[in-house]
Amino acid sequence: MEIIIIGLLLGGTYALMAMGLQLQYGVARIMNLANGEVLVAAAFGTFWFFSATQVSPFVALIGIVPLAFVVNWAIYRFLMLPLVKRAKNQGQLEVDSILATFGISFIFIGILLAVFGGDYLSYSYMASPVHLLGETYGLNRIAAFLGSAVLCVGLYVWLNRTRAGLTLRAVAVNPSAASLVSINVVNASALAFALGGAVTAAGGMMLSMFLTFDASLGVIFTLKALVIVIMGGVSDIRGAILAAFILGLTETVVAILVDPGLTLAAAYVLFLIILLVRPQGLFGRRTS
């Protein structure tokens, strides 16, 4: 029971970060390998804010989210768009964007090292125990889960119930048809990429409440988000949410019952199985 709850709490936070990558990959069609660095940068920003002010890390979202939005918009507009325009097909764009964003991730790491140094950083906020069904859990983990859940639901409703959200889903489904209904696909993609970065940054803020970070940790979160998005199916947010919980549970089960050192390995075994057995994702359909 304890394992399940910890796994679910972790999965909820993972879901938020994976939704960021999914917006960037599903709508803007950029496989952003610098996604994890945005998350770590947001975690560092939250650390810095909390250490300096002792005000709730949630307040840091007010600065972090718009900043991540602007930075990611600029990355799309000035670094990705030339690649999009040049690419003759989706395959070429994927190769180019993977190489480019992999490079960008090192630029982020360099900046983080220069600004914050190479130490492991963590802070203590809401670190009090909470009793739930006979076991105790950190209040910060529960707060991170609830914060993530609110943002996930908000994003889901926005995508499915508003005209602007419908526009982004249309671009995800069929960019050429989107242009025929007067959607400016370039602007919509830039918006999705920026929004994805902002959502990932919010995920970084949530994770920073209970994890310890250093500048090199981004790649691990990029890969976790990648596992979730591929497992859940690129085009379906519900799939990603379910996949995030599966990943959270798997990691927790392995860490507690087997060995904490094997969590990443377990995540990849899961990933490989999905890739071999159901490459279109849990909810995905084979493209016709």
Binding site: R163, L166, T167, R169, A170, V173, N174, S176, A177, A178, L180, V181, S182, I183, S235
Partner: peptide, 26 residues
């Protein structure tokens, strides 16, 4: 308004969503 050879519809979306998207132009 162009209906291209591949129909230019949003296959994964519902009929209503397709029609709503049709009304996206100002």
């Amino acid at each position: 308004a162009l209906v291209p050879e591949d129909r230019g519809i949003f296959a994964d979306l519902t009929v209503m969503e397709n029609l709503q998207l049709g009304a996206h132009p100002k």
